[in-house]
Design a protein around this nucleic acid. Sequence first.
RNA 1: GCUGAUGUAACUCAGCUGGAUAGAGUGCAUCCCUCCUAAGGAUGAAGCCGGAGGUUCGAAUCCUCUCAUCAGCGCCA
Length: 593
Amino acid sequence: MLTKKLTKLLKKAFIEAGYDSKYGEVVVSGRPDLCQFQCNGAMPAAKEYKKAPFIISDDVIEKLLSFEETKQYIKVAKTIKPGFINMTLTDECLIKNTTELGESNRLGIESTDTPSTIIIDYGGPNIAKPLHVGHLRTAIIGESIKRLFKFLGYNVIGDIHLGDWGLQMGMIISEIHRNQPTLPYFDSEFTGEYPIEPPFNLADLEEIYPRVSAKSKEDEQVYNEAKTATFELQQGNKGYLALWQHIMNVSLIDVKKNYQRLNVDFDLWYGESNSQQYIEPAVKVLKDNGSLYKSDGAMVVDVAKDDDKKEIPPLIIYKSDGSVIYGTTDLATIYQRMQDYNPSHILYVVDSRQANHFTQVFRCAEDNKLVPRSTSLEHIGFGTMNGKDGKPFKTRAGGTLRLSDLIDLVEGNAKTKIETNAKERGFTPNADEIESISKVVGLATLKYADLSNYRMKDYVFDLDKFSSFEGKTGPYILYSTVRIKNIIRKLESAGFNKGELLIPASQVERDILLKLDGFNNVLQMAARDRAPNVICEYVYELATLMSTFYHMHHILNEENQARKASWYTLLTYVLSTLINGLDILGITIPEKM
RNA sequence: GCUGAUGUAACUCAGCUGGAUAGAGUGCAUCCCUCCUAAGGAUGAAGCCGGAGGUUCGAAUCCUCUCAUCAGCGCCA
C-alpha cells in the first residue's frame, strides 16, 4: 500500500520539520501528468503555523529526502505552486511493491483488526408474490456487500428475511378459504393428518395474491377476513399453519430458483415467521421498561426524540386487532440475532423508502437495550427503480416485470451475441458451452449495470443498458479478463515460466503497477461507504489499462525472454485482482466467451 | 405542509472526509483488424457541476436560502 507507506514517511517528515503529523496524509495524485502521489498538508498547516505553505512544504521535503529509506524509493519530491508536495516513485520501488502484493496470499489486502460478526439482511422477498425487478437491487447489492465484508475478514451472515408472516399470508389463506371452504384446514373439528399434497400449485398461488389484494382494496369484508386470518395464523391456528406450510413449500422452490440464477445465496433462510417465538421475550423487555402503551387501540412504543426535526410516529407493536406487524417481527428478529450471533452490525439492505420504518425500529431497539451500544443497526438504503419516464418501472402492458423474465431476456441476449461472435471467428462451441457462457455473461451484464450506480440514487431501469455489451459494461470486463486467461493458457501450454518483474517498459505498464496497488484502498472505501460501485469503477479502470497494454505490447511474440516472463507474472497479478474484484461483485468469469 | 433524497456533457452516470486543467460510457466525427478475442484501441467536438449568497488561500464537494423532480409521513411490507 504505497499511500500508506508514503503517509508514514510524510508524517515523520512533518514531525521532524516541527509540524503536526496530522498534515502528512498522502493520496494518489489527481494530476497523473505531474506526479504519482501528492500530499496537501502544507496548505492547511500554513494557517496553524502562520507561514507560507511553500515554506512548510520545502521544510518537509528536505527532511523527507534526508531519510535513508526515502532515497531508494522516491524518485522526485517537490513543491508546486501554493504548497502541494508532489512525489513520484522509482520504478524499482514500484516493482518491489507489486511483487510483494502479488506474492502475498490476499493481494496485500488488509483484514480487519476487529473480525466481528456482521448480519446482512437482504433479499426480503414476499412469499407467494413472484419476484419482480424490484427485488433485483437488494439481492445484488446485498450479496456484494456480504462478499466484501467476508473478504475483509469479518464473519458475515446473510439472512434472506422472507416476508412470510404478515397480512399477505392472511390474504391468501382467507382467499383459499372462500374458494375451497371444504378443505380440512378450515374445519376446526378436524383431528386427522392434513394432506401432504398442497391444494394448489405455483401458478395458482401466483394468481391468488394479486386477485385478493385488489379485491381487499374495494371490499372491506375481504380485507377484514384477511386480517382475521393473519391474526389466527399468528395465534397458531393448526389448519392455517398447515396451509401456510404448503404455501411456503410451493413458493420457496421458485424463490430459490430465482436466487440461484442470480448467483445469490444466503446463509440463513429465515423469515419473519422465525421470529415468532422471540416476540414474547422482546415485548416483555418493552413492558418491563414501561415503554409499551395503548394508543388508538394499538399497542405502541414512543420513539420520538426532543431534537427531531419532524414528527416520528410511535412504533406499532400490536395492531388494534391484536396481530403483529413487521415492526414487531423486526424487533423480535433483532432479539433473536443478538441471542444467536451477538453481531457488531446488522445491515439492512432495503429500499430507502423504508427509512422511517428503520428509524423507528432502531430507536425502539436501542432505547430499550435490545441491542448493546457496541452493536450498530444500519439501514443500507437504495434508490427506487424507475422506468425511462422517471416513474416506477412498469412493463409495456403496465404490469411489473418478473425477475425470471428479466434474467431470461438478458441471457437470451448474451446467447445471440455469443453465437454470432463464434461464427465470425469460425469456431463452433457446443450447445452446452453456449448455454453456460450466456448465463455467466448475461448475469455479469445485469449485475454490473446495477452495481455501478451509486446505491442511494434513484435508478433508471434501462433494458438497453442491461443488455449492452459495449463500453463500460460487465461483458467488457469479462472480455478483458478472459483475454488474460487465454494468454496465460498459451504461455502455460508452451511450457513458459514466470519471471521476476522488470522495470516497466511503458507508461501503461507503470500505470498498471500503480493501479494494482490501489485495490486495497478501493476495498476499504467500498466497505466504509457500503458502496460496491467503487469496486465496479476500479475493475473497469484496470481492464481498460489492460486493453491499452495489449495494444502496445504483444506478449506472446515478445522476443526478450526475461521481458516476456515478467509480463507473464504481471498478467497473473492482474488476473487475480480482477477475479477477486469481480467475485466481490458477485460476477463469475467464463473460460471463453 | 413537514422531513429526506436527487439535480454534473445530447443521453445514462462517476467524482462529494474541500485541492492543481470536472471524468467515464453511449451517441456523434476521423482513423486502426496479415499479429495473444474489434464484445477492442487511438484522436476529436461536446459542461455558468439547477440558481443565488456565504465560509476558505482554494468549493461540483462544506453552510444558508431558493427552484425543480421523486419519496416518506400510525395500524401494508
